[in-house]
Computed example of a mutant assay.
Amino acid sequence: MDRLQQMTAFVRVVETGSFSAAARRIGVGQPAISKTIAQLEDRLQVRLLVRSTHGLSPTDAGIRFYERAKTAIQEADEAELEARGAGAGLSGRLRVCAATTFARLMIVPHLPAFMAEHPELEVDVVLDDRVIDLVSEGIDIALRMGELADSSAIARRITTGRRSVVATSAYLERHGVPKVPADLASHQALVYTQLGNSWTFRKDGTEASVVVSGRARFTAAEGIRAAVLAHMGLAVTSDWMFWPELQTGEVLRVLEEWALPPLDLWAVFPTGRLASAKARAFADFVQTIVL
């Protein structure tokens, strides 16, 4: 076997935990897999696998080699797809990660169109407001908003969205409409703990920062959305969070003459390997939705 075939055999052994299972997946006999791994270890002059009561497991060197080999195989597959011009006919599995509320409102309703365009593609949507490790979770593309915590991340800005102070029309009818940022002091603010309770506005070169207060704080955007719709108070959110209700007038923007810092939407790809054709196609698809 050539080098790439050896790497493929090793990766399959690690993933399946046995020579026989790896052989079935590749479509060769078990002796061929055993011989290939022995040749690979001999060429590298290092032990990659050890036997235990639970089967085969990689050594420390094997774990490091597995991660690099898996990336190399993925990139080789992508290179072949690119050469064949297969971007229009994507197949396999795509794992996408996005914040729960954003995905529910902006991505999932449009997902049937993307999957209809690529009928051989399966999509796993991981809903999580946290910044998770893309490599360990096997994520192909993550949609993230705001400043990226990791400056080394492989990322592409999809668009920049608007932030607004919003409330339901029913809440504003009962409590009045704030005219300037200082008026927020007399309102119940719904605080998203990731953003804090200091809201900064700009207008005509003037900056106004307001420390808001409220009886309810939330650790997830879904909680903010539910609280606003329950008429509990005002919140700072992206327009994406209340896109349906902003169209119907159930939720209204206030202080529209005062600008809040905009919100960047990023497509983030796993560090250490090229973005797959599937991931790039999905980023292009999302861009058509949110622009």
Rank of each mutant, 00 (worst) to 15 (best):
P119S: 13
L105Q: 10
D284F: 02
H231Y: 10
L184A: 07
L40Y: 04
E173S: 14
L190F: 05
S198E: 15
H118C: 07
R64Q: 12
H118K: 10
I139C: 11
L148N: 11
E15Q: 05
Q6D: 03
V28M: 15
L81P: 00
E257F: 04
G214M: 02
E78W: 03
D60M: 09
G233N: 09
D42E: 15
G85H: 04
V108G: 03
A153H: 07
Q6L: 02
G92T: 07
G272A: 08
A23K: 11
I107W: 03
G161A: 14
E78P: 01
F19I: 13
E122Y: 13
L48F: 09
T159N: 06
A259C: 05
L48E: 10
F218T: 14
K179P: 00
T101Y: 11
G196Q: 08
R162A: 06
S238T: 14
I33V: 15
V126R: 14
Q247C: 03
A149G: 12
F218V: 10
A208E: 06
W266I: 09
T206R: 13
A185P: 00
L229A: 12
T71A: 07
Y66R: 08
A279D: 03
K278L: 00
I154D: 14
F114V: 05
L48Y: 05
A277K: 09
D128S: 14
D239Y: 08
G87S: 06
L195G: 10
I63L: 11
Q188D: 08
E173K: 13
F102Y: 07
L291I: 07
S198V: 15
T168I: 08
G87Y: 02
T288V: 01
R64L: 06
